[in-house]
Simulated scan of single mutants.
Amino acid sequence: MPHPEVERQMPTDEARELLHLVRDIARREIAPRACEDEEAGRFPRETFTLLSRAGLLGLPYDSASGGGDQPYEVYLQVVEELAAARLTVGLGVSVHSLSCHALAGFGTREQRARHLPGMLGGGLLGAYCLSEPSSGSDAASLRTKAVRDGGDWVLTGTKAWVTHGGVADFCTVLARSGGEGAHGITAFLVPGDAEGLSAAPPERKMGLKGSPTAQVHLDGVRVSDARRIGDEGQGFQIALSALDSGRLGIAACAIGVAQAALDEAVAYAKGRIQFGRPVADFQGIRFLLADMATRIEAGRALYLSAARLRDAGRPFSPQAAMAKLLCTDAAMQVTTDAVQVLGGYGYTADFPVERWMREAKVLQIVEGTNQIQRMVIARHLAGPETR
């Protein structure tokens, strides 16, 4: 049974046409193979090449640098549509955008002119290297070293939980160039084929199996100072700036997964006959579906509200944390409920809801766990914790 399309209010005719293009690509190129490719753990590099050619990997960036000049309000709804078709793709677009953020926002004019066109529309794919085996939520304690050597920097260390690790064409790497704490960190743009850069075998994950997540090793990787992004010691500020935007991408991904699960649950409930009636006739199922739909609409409204603040140039950090928290918690609940609606069938791999339930879990963890989001929100309300 075909699923209904979400009714969206897009700000321009161009945005509406863009969404039609995205839905067509999702329907023809992504969704039909999603279950099979996820089960096999296949990374859809050809899909990202297609998206790049269609101008969909640089949507929120300046067209002068190869981007799409789209507001975040539009970009995030594109991410949601892609995630609904296959989370590996939606999340991949979000991570790629995150990987471009440092150079687009803090690079020099010469750096942007040299690198951004390929990153945004030239078929390249990015990775974001912040976390390490011993520094996840406590990112300011990272240990990867950046040591000056003449006009170059030499990077040594290990990054962890890197989406696109081993397949990325470029990496935004945060490394310690100075003393301890947040003020000793600097950002670098590292080519994916740099000598001394390698990736461990991908992690064996509960879900999102088509998206490679791997440790990235930097063994004396030499990069020119021309690839340093921003000032020395500015890296942590750059990282936090990127994460505020990245959290909105994760929120949009979560709502995409949740919407897909709701659509599947509604279609199943209308077609499954028990006691002589569709199970959608029973109040227990109807109320469950109503709660699922309400959580999705609330999450979508919140991430779009935060996006509009960002588009207006206003502070949006607490709203981004709220959106990431609410949307990913909603996705976990909605996908769990979708499995329940399908009953025993929901627990089998014959239907996609069990996959969406496994995928929803990781969205509560990546780009700042939901416990970290609560800390960010509380600090905005009550100030820093007393020591």
Rank of each mutant, 00 (worst) to 15 (best):
R310E: 11
R148T: 10
A34Q: 01
A140R: 12
V95R: 02
P202N: 05
D219E: 15
E14G: 07
A293D: 15
D311R: 01
I365V: 15
T49P: 00
T335R: 03
E264S: 14
V154R: 13
G179V: 11
G230C: 07
A258F: 10
G233D: 11
G67V: 04
A175G: 00
L142G: 05
L197C: 01
A146E: 08
G165L: 01
D311K: 05
G343R: 06
A214E: 07
G271Q: 08
G284T: 15
T12P: 03
R204V: 11
F316S: 05
Q111W: 13
A31W: 06
F48C: 01
E17R: 15
S94H: 05
L91E: 01
T12W: 07
L174T: 03
H183Q: 15
T88S: 06
E180R: 15
M322P: 02
T108H: 09
A200Y: 02
H115R: 07
L342P: 02
E132Q: 11
V339G: 04
L82Y: 01
R114E: 09
A200H: 05
L130S: 10
L342Q: 07
T369D: 15
L240W: 08
S63L: 02
Y75N: 01
L125D: 03
L59S: 00
A214P: 02
F43Q: 04
Q77I: 03
R23E: 13
Q111F: 10
F188D: 00
R314G: 10
I365T: 14
S65P: 00
G299T: 03
A40W: 02
M119H: 07
M357Q: 13
V79T: 04
A382S: 12
E17Q: 15
D13C: 08
D291W: 12
H96V: 01
L116T: 02
T163N: 08
H217T: 13
V257P: 04
A269C: 14
G235C: 12
R310A: 14
P352E: 11
P32T: 12
R204A: 11
R355C: 04
L120V: 02
D169R: 04
Y268R: 04
C100H: 01
R45E: 08
D193W: 06
A320I: 03
Q111N: 09
V266R: 14
A252D: 01
W153L: 08
L363W: 08
A306C: 09
G313Q: 13
L381G: 08
V216D: 00
G235A: 07
D69T: 03
S224W: 09
E367G: 02
Y345D: 11
L125Q: 05
Y72E: 02
S317A: 15
A312G: 12
R176Q: 09
H380Y: 13
Q333F: 11
P4C: 03
T336M: 12
L56Y: 03
